[in-house]
């Protein structure tokens, strides 16, 4: 299976190890992974703030970059959904760019959905190697187009051998929301404070969170409080179990 990797700005810049883990796991499962470096941003920051004209060329660029890939996989459901859910409506029906975006939308997945829905991967090879003690799950809101909160819990349960419990209010937004976090820091801050309280109450030492934005927000609040809890992507957990993580300090 030929897969184009859509890394997304935040993962590229802040969490390269997540990208490495996605590639390692996909290759381990027999995918041929390509990373076209002409990719940039999905345009979501513009789109979410009403600047549709600014979002359009970025979506169009990705449609061109990934036109020949069988599937396109992103660590982030949010950026994948920007293309899949909102991308098409930026272009008039029947136009050539619209055809390209529609086509890309049908091939676009976040890593965990791709693993479960397309590869239908059997978790047996990594279950024994999982290093998960006291792990809890946070559902990222923008996974909604791919998976409901309830199904996400079942899915993570199956993928990680029942080693993860959902946080209290696991599907309540952590307060990231892109520009929202900077425009309304008081609300956003109070929301992440609630998330941290749920983490504290759970006693979890590891939080599974697939979205880089949520992760920066939750980690930021945990770090300010000096709480020793690590936040990880599903791909990192699986790569680690398979012994495929990047060496420390890379």
């Amino acid at each position: 299976m030929r897969v184009g990797l859509f890394i997304t700005c935040l993962t590229d810049t802040y969490y390269p190890r997540v990208g490495a883990a996605v590639v390692a796991v996909l290759r381990h499962l027999g995918c041929e992974v390509r990373f076209p470096t002409e990719q940039t941003c999905c345009g979501q920051p513009a789109f979410n703030n009403g600047l549709l004209d600014e979002a359009r060329p970025l979506v169009a660029n990705l449609a061109g970059v990934f036109r020949d890939d069988e599937y396109v996989v992103s660590p982030s459901a949010s950026c994948a959904a920007m293309i899949g859910e909102h991308g098409p409506e930026l272009f008039s029906a029947g136009s050539e760019p619209r055809r390209l975006i529609d086509d890309l939308a049908s091939r676009m997945f976040d890593f965990t959905s791709f693993l479960c829905n397309v590869l239908k991967a059997d978790p047996a090879p990594w279950i024994d190697g999982l290093k998960l003690d006291n792990a809890a799950f946070h559902y990222s809101c923008h996974s909604r187009p791919f998976v409901s909160p309830e199904t996400a819990v079942e899915r993570i349960d199956r993928l990680l051998g029942g080693r993860v419990t959902p946080l209290e209010r696991f599907d309540q937004c952590c307060g990231f929301g892109g520009m929202f976090a900077m425009e309304y820091p008081q609300i956003s801050g109070a929301m992440v404070e609630d998330k941290v309280q749920c983490i504290e109450a759970s006693g979890a030492k590891t939080i599974i969170c697939d979205e880089a934005g949520c992760r920066m927000n939750i980690e930021g609040a945990l770090h300010r409080k000096g709480m020793d809890v690590r936040v990880v992507h599903t791909a990192e957990v699986i790569a680690e179990a398979l012994g495929l993580s990047l060496p420390e300090g890379t």
């Binding site: 810049t13 390269p16 820091p185 008081q186 956003s188 920066m216 930021g220 609040a221 770090h223």
Partner: peptide, 15 residues
């Protein structure tokens, strides 16, 4: 300002 720290980018990007 909202009681959370900000992570600096990784030393080297994925690309």
């Amino acid at each position: 300002a909202a009681q959370r720290d900000m992570k600096a980018p990784a030393r080297r990007s994925f690309r």
